[in-house]
Amino acid sequence: MTAVKPFAIEVPDEVLDDLHRRLDATRWFDPLPGAGWEEGTDLDYLKELCRYWRHDYDWRAVEAQLNLFPQYTTTIDNQRIHFIHARCRNPDAMALVIHHGWPGSITEFAKVIEPLREHFHVVCPSLPGYGFSGPTSEPGWTPRRMAAASLELMSRLGYDRFGAQGGDWGAMVTTQMALQAPERLTGIHLNLIIAPEPPPGSVRDLTDEERAALSEGRTRNLAERGYRVQQATRPQTLSVGLNDSPAGLAAWIVEKFLVWSDIGPDNDIEASFTKDELLTNVMVYWVTGTIASANRLYYETRIGGRGASAPDRQVEVPTAYARFPGDGIFPARPWVEYWYNIVRWTEMPRGGHFASLEAPDLYIDDVVATFGELGQS
């Protein structure tokens, strides 16, 4: 069996020096008056964020905080896998693996790992191709393959039966785990669900309210799909610029933290996230050089077909769904209940796509309640 090795984040000084040089040399353009966030990332906000990044942000302090979490690496399916493994003080506690998505990282869970650790043995991997797992070195890394890697990781850590949680791509990885090894999953908890329309006649007709929500979601999807189309068709072209320019990388990622979050019409992104939280997530991509392989997940999934991500058969494992209003995903409940064995459905009062970072209290309570109800059966 491949060894599990302790790991600490230690970014070389020359990487930080190079970052500072690139930030100093950013070639800005002048947006049209009043462009704001409507045309993408607000340039005035981005300039201030990059100024803060260059002169006030302290990566070494953040690095030290992240290194308080027990971290490890191992190799699975020819790919390095980095993960946090925070054991509960109760040796008989249930294990829980939690998965991030794009454009997130393990830093999404910085506020929730210790509280969850009071109830679970927490395993938090960097997805293959993301962050400290490093770039992928071969094609084929879809959510299906990532799920197989997470299942192997849990076996390697000695967990035969456990719970799993995820949002964004992490929800798809979690779903694939439930499809591949239902006997090993006590239950799954998702804060995003993609539920295709079931076969005709298999579920009740949607209510007017459900149809309106579905229509609203589709309208939003049309407006927001640009990044996804690019990453699913020509990720390499895009990634050249993102891997070369820290300002460009921040613009690409930070926009999603605004658009997918529970932020009011004034577009005050810092009502939900601090500059340090935004930049720490961006830094994980920058210092590891993983934006290209992270973006490639969209391409791999497109060519892999629907069964590589969304379910192509019904998920039998008990499933909890927490819908956070800022996320912008409005799945039709009858469709969700066709594909998933829904045992808990929570409409959250606030929060968005990055739920564990934006609304950690709600996220923690719902995860703990879910697996408390399911028990360790």
Rank of each mutant, 00 (worst) to 15 (best):
F132Q: 05
D276T: 10
E347A: 10
I106Y: 08
G40C: 08
G351L: 04
E210I: 00
A35S: 11
I98F: 02
A271W: 06
T175W: 00
G131L: 06
S137C: 14
W335S: 02
M177Q: 06
H121S: 10
V317Q: 02
T290D: 11
L238K: 03
H99W: 05
D42T: 04
W102G: 00
L222A: 12
V229H: 10
F354N: 11
V122D: 04
A359H: 02
R60Q: 12
Q165T: 10
E197K: 14
V282S: 05
A332H: 05
R220E: 14
S293A: 06
R80K: 15
V368E: 05
I194L: 08
E108A: 03
L362C: 09
S261M: 01
A223V: 12
R313H: 06
I253F: 03
W169A: 01
V112F: 10
E114M: 10
R218Q: 13
V112Q: 04
R87H: 08
V259I: 12
G307T: 06
A294T: 05
L49E: 02
R145G: 12
P246I: 08
W286E: 07
D276L: 06
P360K: 06
P125S: 05
R80L: 13
W335P: 00
S245K: 10
D327L: 01
V229R: 14
F330H: 15
V15Q: 12
R350S: 14
A3K: 11
D244L: 13
I81Q: 04
G351V: 02
W141S: 07
A61W: 04
N221P: 01
E337D: 09
S356D: 04
V203Y: 02
F324I: 12
I269Y: 01
T301L: 01
E183N: 03
R225W: 10
W169D: 03
A232Y: 00
E197F: 03
W141P: 01
A35N: 10
V122N: 07
L362Q: 09
H353W: 13
W252C: 00
T290G: 02
P318Y: 03
E216W: 13
N90K: 05
T301K: 07
D18S: 15
A171R: 00
K111I: 03
V203E: 00
G163E: 05
G104R: 02
A212D: 15
R21L: 15
G131E: 01
I253R: 09
M348P: 11
T175Y: 05
L185D: 02
N221M: 12
G305S: 13
I76A: 06
F324R: 09
R228E: 14
L96G: 07
E300L: 03
F273Q: 02
G352L: 06
V122I: 14
I84G: 09
R60C: 09
L16H: 12
F257P: 04
A178K: 11
V62T: 15
A181L: 07
N267M: 11
G101M: 04
D18E: 15
S155Q: 14
Y285P: 06
G351S: 05
P200S: 08
V123E: 11
A164D: 05
H99L: 10
D18A: 14
A247K: 00
E118L: 12
T142W: 04
T186M: 08
S356R: 03
A64V: 07
G170H: 09
R54P: 06
V336F: 01
P31G: 08
T136D: 14
M283E: 03
E197M: 12
G163R: 02
E300D: 01
A86I: 04
D365Q: 15
T301H: 05
S377W: 03
